[in-house]
Structures are given as structure tokens and as C-alpha cells.
Design a protein around this nucleic acid. Sequence first.
DNA 1: TATTGTTATACTCTATAACTATA
DNA 2: TATAGTTATAGAGTATAACAATA
Lengths: 124, 124
Amino acid sequence: MHAHPRRVRFESSDAVAPHQFGVLAQLNESPRTPRELADHERVSAPSMTRTVNGLVDRGLVARTDDPTDGRQVIVSLTGEGRQLLKDIRRRRDAWMSVRVSRLSREEQDVLRQAAVILARVASE
Amino acid sequence: MHAHPRRVRFESSDAVAPHQFGVLAQLNESPRTPRELADHERVSAPSMTRTVNGLVDRGLVARTDDPTDGRQVIVSLTGEGRQLLKDIRRRRDAWMSVRVSRLSREEQDVLRQAAVILARVASE
DNA sequence: TATTGTTATACTCTATAACTATA
DNA sequence: TATAGTTATAGAGTATAACAATA
């Protein structure tokens, strides 16, 4: 509480479970209500309450009251949560980059084209 | 217990969880010990005990004693388990076939090539 | 002693039902 | 009444530790 705030992040575990990562990624787009988070992740409201609680306890997200509707709360990323998401993505990208970089240019093109096709199929 | 045995299968739920499907698929290759199943699925031995119990309860697999090593047991598919696995795969293939069949010949080629590349990357 | 498998126990994520507060 | 969120409770998956039986 008195010195190197970055040490805290680097010393703590960066691990987040898949369902937590999904919430962080959503909140990186914009703040959301628990209802919106639950619908997007296709889990029940109580499950999302639990997930959000865990992220709040870790200081990665924060709850604030909706100023216009007293029933709702707004969940948003903290600076720490945003930084953690960024770190995780950087690490994942690095992991994949190494493997893709070993492929030939033609192979990389095939993967790029396949990604486009699969994205279209998945959205049907 | 007196007539249409197939009715039983068609009336019962075909749903199997992913970790159960993995075990059925392994056993379709050949019978295995719980130890082998656990190692392959990368779960602990007690978890595999539980999974096998569930499959035994549903009549999809059976335990038999190893004749040469009294410590080991052998888990194998029942006829019902083999048939269920076959049905699930047929349904999955049908689902994917419909989507792939809507693609052009070129797009299908791209996916085939990508699958080969990704399989190689994944096995590195 | 080492190995195989199970039982005991606990933690996490999931769900549905019931409850509170607000619209 | 309907909606948003939480709490209560239970089910299914995971794990580690401890145990029994056998090699």
C-alpha cells in the first residue's frame, strides 16, 4: 500500500478461468449489467453473480449503481482488470505467433482463409 | 425386458458430457484400464473412477477383472455403449456435413488443407 | 515398497427456487 | 405485476489425501 503498485500485479497469479476471461473481454468493449453478461455467456443470473463476485474480490471489475434504474447495477473493468486482459491477450498472441511464424507463407494464407470461412459458418 | 430392445435406446437420452464422450471414444479403440483412461483424458484417477461409475450405471461400459494382475480392472464398451457412440458421431457428422455442403468446392478445399496444418501445429 | 483402484473430503462452476428492491 | 439482482441450496465435475488389495 506504500510502494510499487505494479509489483502487486506481477506477483499475483494472472490465471483466469475461461468463464472469467469471457466477462473481462465483454467489459473491455463497454460496461454491462449482470443480465447482459449472463445472456451473452449463456449462463444463469446466479452464476454470473458468482463470477462477478470473484472478479470483484480480485479487484478486476467494479459494481456501480445505475443512476436511472435502481434495480440495475453496472459492472465495469478496473484499471487492473483492463491491464490483466491486455497481458493475457499479449501472451496468447505470442504463443500463437511463434507457431504460425514457423509455417510457410502459403500455409499461413490457408489458415487466414479458413478462419474467414469458419467465422461465416459459425455465424449462420 | 421382453420386447423391443432398441426402444430402450431411442427412449433414453443420448446426451453424454464431453468427458464421457472421450472415454467412450477411447474404449471404442480397445478396452483400457482406468489408469490409461485417466492419463489420456488428463484427469486424476478418482475423477476417472467417478466417470466410469456413471457410464457403468447407464450400461454403456462394463468393468471386468484383469486375469493376470489382480490390482487392475479392465473397462470396455457394452453393445449399448458402442451403439450410442455410433449414433452420436453420425449425428455430429450430419450437422457438419450440412454446413460444409453449402460451401463451394474451393472453400471445402481450404478447410481440408487448414485441418492438416492445424493438426500438425497441435502435435508439435 | 510400489502400483492400481477406490473412498473420503473439499472446492468450483453450474442450475433452479425463493427472496428483496425497484419500476 | 414484472424485472434485476442476490441468496439458498443442490448437482456434477474437478482435485488431493488416505486407504485396501495385489505385485
